[in-house]
Each structure stands twice: as structure tokens, then as C-alpha cells.
Write a protein that binds this DNA or RNA. Structure first.
Lengths: 251, 251
DNA sequence: CGGCGGCTTGAGGTTGGTCAAGGCATGTGG
DNA sequence: CCACATGCCTTGACCAACCTCAAGCCGCCG
């Protein structure tokens, strides 16, 4: 397990994501494989990162979902983002002396543990990998920026529409959703903690979307019935989620 | 102007920020200097990036302030962040085919224009620079994450307290604020557009902070009278703004 | 079968947005 | 040098939105 072949690494969701942005050579891939060799399994509802503690390792998600959030003294919780396969648990929380927010698994997960020193060494040794990670970080920041707009200025119904489309699009990007439907990994209270609404109000807004024929639900499965209308309602432009190839100047 | 000496580059606010994170060698610095050689001056209130258009260049801020924001169809505006010296206009907006949000100068500015291809070439040629930029991006993402919490879950008074302390701390970090006071670069409407409140309500909340003796104001100058109380009120932990040195494994 | 977590719905109250008007400082042009 | 315009701050009144609290229900799992 310390020296996996370079082959399997290509199918890792993180590498799959990189491949759309920048072409990595064999050396890059085997350096990545060296670093992604510590598989860790985490059960649903387990904390992975707790705010305020020191973490000297990142975890790259192979499978499962988690939430990145902050708890306030009032007891309120704000979820910044849902973490999906190919995401990095601990970005950017673990780049600090003490984690700046918490992460909890919301399903069983398989992760690859990467000590921060190994990560740093990889970045400083492999410029293309560091560049790919920089693009990755830019996408992460863009997602956060959209969430600021959601929470700060959109109406509740708009927020929900935006969040549903964002989740659909992200899940499709990792092959975990069909053309027009997906399984929402969060409870309604969880959704409320993402978009800044109370659970009852999330329920009312979902009911409104159903009543207006924009979505249908059965259990946690959400079916998008009128994507065009939802896009207009939530002012959703998938551009910020779409992988942009890094233009590589001729050598 | 095409080939500045490696000396002046050390005093650039971006490099100053990098220096706290990672040590760059002469080659790194001169590569940076090569890239930061196109000075641009922008007048207050001029757009630098307009959402939806294509930009193939970044602008590194040497002087002045700008806002990164999104306009909604309703006419509402959400500011994601105030851009200060040492920040990169166009991160992460310009990493996409079309800019995912807008940037407007709120004071006269001096910038260094960096074509995206040059930027990419720098990253892929200079691993340490790419790594420093990755850390930079992580800090940016952490700031956004705090803004999500602000807009989503904090009470108006708490938001304002948090925003004031964040602004003070960031300005101090670039040597643009004293121990306990700073000049707010935004109007009250602008502040409202950052923290998701209406201008009248920002005014009411500011009045409340003044009434309670936490701050004093004269014009756009804000003086923090009781930092401890403000920190508790806004649950402000400056950790996410503080530069963490990148631990560099022995070669 | 019983308990629990999560969904659903309702009633009521506060918060904070909207609208509006006035004040004050700054800047500009006659 | 004054008249006026402009932009921003300040304050008040009103009202809708959304939170809180609460109760009931459903489905799932032990």
C-alpha cells in the first residue's frame, strides 16, 4: 500500500478533476500517488476537523459527503459548503495554526490522509501539481463567493433554487447525478444551515417550488422539472462550477 | 520599465505577504519582477472587471482599494470582499472563461497587470511561487468563508462588529491602520452591501455601537474603543487573517 | 411495538427592509 | 463669493417576511 502503481491514481476523483484543467506527466502522477497512499475510513456523523484544534494533515475525499461549517455561540450553525468526492477536507481550514472551522462526515466516507508536510513538499517539488491545486482553490473560492451572495442578498426562494441547481451540477460533475435528478445529502435543517434559513422555512419554500411545478420530491430525491425557470429564479450561472482548462504556453 | 532590478520587487505588497509564508530565492523574485512590470493606474469608481466578459489578465494591487461584487437582477448588490494592496484583482473571477463577478475601484489605484498566460507560466516554472499563491488563495477562501457566516447566521450587530474588526486587522496587516483606528473605505451603503443589510440599518447598528461605547466615529474614521467587547460580540477570531508560515521540509 | 429523527403545518411576534423626508458637507459653476 | 446640486448620513413610520415555538405526523430502525 505504500507504493501503489501509477495506474489506479488516474481514476481518483481528485486527479480526474485536475485532468480537466492541466495535463500532468508521469512524474506528477506518481508523486501524487505517493502522497495519496493512506486510506482512511470515516463513519457517518463523525467529526473530521474540529475548529480550534491543530491539524497537520489534509484528507482528500474518494467517496462520501461531509459538511464544512462553523458553530456560533448562539448555537446557530452555518454550513459553508458540502464536501464531495474529489474535494479536499481541510482546505482551507488546515492551512492555519488552528483549524478555522469544523468538518463532519454526513455519510460513510473513504479518504486519503496527506500530512501537511508531504503536501507542501509535493507542491514545492511539482509546479504543475501546485498550479492545478491553485486552480482548484480558485474554484473553491468562487463557490464560497456564490454562497455569500446567496446568504446576503438573494430571497429565500431564490437561494433555494440556486442551491438545488448548484448541488445538481456539482453532483453531475462527479457522475453522481442523472440529467435532472439527484439525492440531496442533507436534511431540510441542513439545507437551512447552508442557505441561512430556518428548517420550517426551507420546508415552505420547497413546498412552493413543488406547487409551482419547478421540482418534484420523493424522500431525499429531488427531480428538477423546469430547469430553465429555476435558473432564472435563482440567477444560476453554472460558469463558476465549470472546469476551465489552464492554458499552457508553449515550452 | 520592462526589466526592473530585483531590489524594488521586495517592497511590493504582494511579495511582502509571500515573504511571511515562504522564503523565495533570487530566481523566484526576479521571475516575479519580470511579471510585475506593467504598471496601470485606475481612477476611483472605474470598473476593472465586469461580470460576464472575458479577461485574460490579473491585476496585482500596489495601492488603493476596490470591491469585488455581484449585481442581481433585482438591483441588489452583494460585495464579496474589499480588495486591498497586495491582493489580486481577478482572483478568482479571471480563472474562468468569463468573469464570474465584477470589480470596481473605490479609490484611485495603482496596479500591475499580469497576462494570464504569464501568470500560468510563472506558476508552472516556479513551484515555490505557485505554492505561495496557493496559500494566498487559501486565505482568500477563509475570508470568504467568514463572510458566509456573517451574512447567513450572525445578527446584524454582530456582523457589523465582525466586519469592523476584520477591516481593522486587514488594514493593520498592510500598515494602513493604527493600533485602534482606521479609515473605512466604504460608505454605509457599501458596508451594507458587504454584510447584507440596508443602509439605514447599518446606520442604526453603528449608532448602537457608538451608544454602547464600543466605537467612536468622525467622518469615515472609525476608532475601536473596546476591542475585547467587540471581539466577543462579533465572535471575531483573527486567526483566519494571520499569515501562517509554510513549513518547509528540509531539502 | 415503541422511540426517534425529520417532515409538515399553524399561530404569533420581532426584526429589519422599504419608503420618505430632512440635514449636512462638499464641490461646482455662474 | 454665493447659489445650487449632489451624495451621504440620519431618523421615523409602517409593514411584510421570516423566525420561534409548538404540535402532530410519518417512516424507519431497533
Amino acid at each position: 500500500m505504500r507504493k501503489p502503481a501509477a495506474g489506479p491514481i488516474r481514476s481518483h476523483p481528485l486527479v480526474a478533476r485536475f485532468n480537466h484543467a492541466i495535463s500532468l506527466d508521469e512524474g506528477d502522477l506518481s508523486a501524487l500517488a505517493d502522497v495519496l497512499n493512506r486510506k482512511v475510513v470515516v463513519k457517518k456523523a463523525k467529526d473530521i476537523i474540529v475548529e480550534g484544534y491543530e491539524y497537520r494533515a489534509l484528507h482528500v475525499v474518494e467517496n462520501g459527503f461531509a459538511i464544512r461549517y462553523k458553530l456560533l455561540h448562539s448555537g446557530k450553525r452555518q454550513i459553508m459548503n458540502v464536501i464531495m468526492p474529489g474535494d479536499i477536507v481541510g482546505f482551507p481550514a488546515c492551512f492555519y495554526e488552528h483549524a478555522v472551522f469544523s468538518v463532519t462526515a454526513i455519510s460513510d466516507m473513504t479518504l486519503h490522509r496527506v500530512p501537511l508536510d508531504d503536501f507542501t513538499a509535493l507542491c514545492t517539488a511539482r509546479a504543475r501539481v501546485a498550479t492545478a491545486l491553485l486552480w482548484f482553490a480558485a474554484r473553491e473560492a468562487a463557490i464560497y463567493a456564490e454562497h455569500i451572495v446567496d446568504a446576503g442578498r438573494r430571497e429565500p426562494l431564490e437561494r433555494l433554487a440556486h442551491f438545488l441547481l448548484e448541488t445538481l451540477t456539482r453532483l453531475q460533475g462527479i457522475g453522481a447525478a442523472s440529467e435532472d435528478s439527484f439525492v440531496m445529502p442533507l436534511s431540510q435543517e441542513g439545507v437551512g444551515n447552508v442557505i441561512g434559513l430556518s428548517a420550517p422555512h426551507v420546508n415552505r419554500m420547497l413546498a412552493e417550488l413543488r406547487r409551482d411545478g419547478l421540482i418534484a420530491m420523493s424522500g431525499h430525491e429531488v427531480r428538477i422539472l423546469d430547469r430553465a425557470a429555476l435558473q432564472i429564479l435563482g440567477e444560476f450561472h453554472p460558469a463558476y462550477l465549470i472546469r476551465t482548462p489552464i492554458h499552457q504556453p508553449a515550452p
